[in-house]
Structure formats: structure tokens, C-alpha cells
Simulated scan of single mutants.
Amino acid sequence: MIQRLIAAHRILNREIRRERTRRAPDRLRLTQLKKERLAIKDRLFRHFPDAAEMRRVARLALGQMRHA
């Protein structure tokens, strides 16, 4: 589940960057994407309240996803 949340967070980051680089960014879409990203981050912090621990777990999960 943690890997799915991290993957969803990364996808949302990409979408936010993509929307920002458009000639006329859609502010409503950006707001929705940011809210979704924050909700995922909140869910991750429920599992790992310590930010350092969450980053460590995220790095491990990303490494596993790259090798899969």
C-alpha cells in the first residue's frame, strides 16, 4: 500500500509540473491536483509520523519499484 501511495504522489507531482509549464495553466486543475497530493501525503504520515522515517521508507519503496 505504501508503494502505491508513493507512486500516486509521484504521478501527481508530474501532473502538477506539466500543468504549470502549460502556456495557460488551469488554476482549478492545479488546485485539485495539489489537494489530492496533500491527501496522499497525509495518508503516508498516518503510517509514518516521523518525517525522516517516511523518507527512508519512501526511498526503499522507490528503489524496489525501479528494480521491479
Rank of each mutant, 00 (worst) to 15 (best):
R56T: 13
R27T: 13
E36M: 10
L33Q: 01
T21G: 01
E53P: 06
R56N: 12
K35G: 14
A51Q: 15
A52F: 10
L44I: 02
R14I: 06
I6P: 00
A61H: 00
R22C: 06
V57R: 10
M54G: 01
D42M: 08
K34A: 08
I6H: 00
V57L: 06
L62Q: 13
A39I: 03
R17M: 04
A58G: 05
D26K: 08
M54D: 02
Q32H: 13
R59Y: 09
R59T: 08
I6W: 00
H47V: 01
A61C: 07
F48C: 02
D26T: 07
R14N: 11
R29Y: 04
R22A: 07
M1G: 04
A52D: 11
R56G: 12
E19I: 03
R37H: 11
E19D: 10
R55L: 11
A8Y: 01
F48R: 02
L44W: 02
Q64T: 06
V57G: 02
A61Q: 01
P49I: 10
R46C: 03
R37V: 04
A52G: 10
R66E: 08
A58S: 14
H9N: 11
D26E: 12
R43P: 03
K41A: 03
L33F: 05
K35H: 14
H67Y: 08
L28R: 13
R18N: 10
R14S: 07
R55M: 13
D26S: 09
K41V: 03
N13T: 15
R27H: 11
A39E: 14
A68C: 03
R14K: 12
I6S: 00
Q64L: 07
K34N: 14
I2R: 06
D42C: 03
N13F: 01
Q3R: 14
L30K: 14
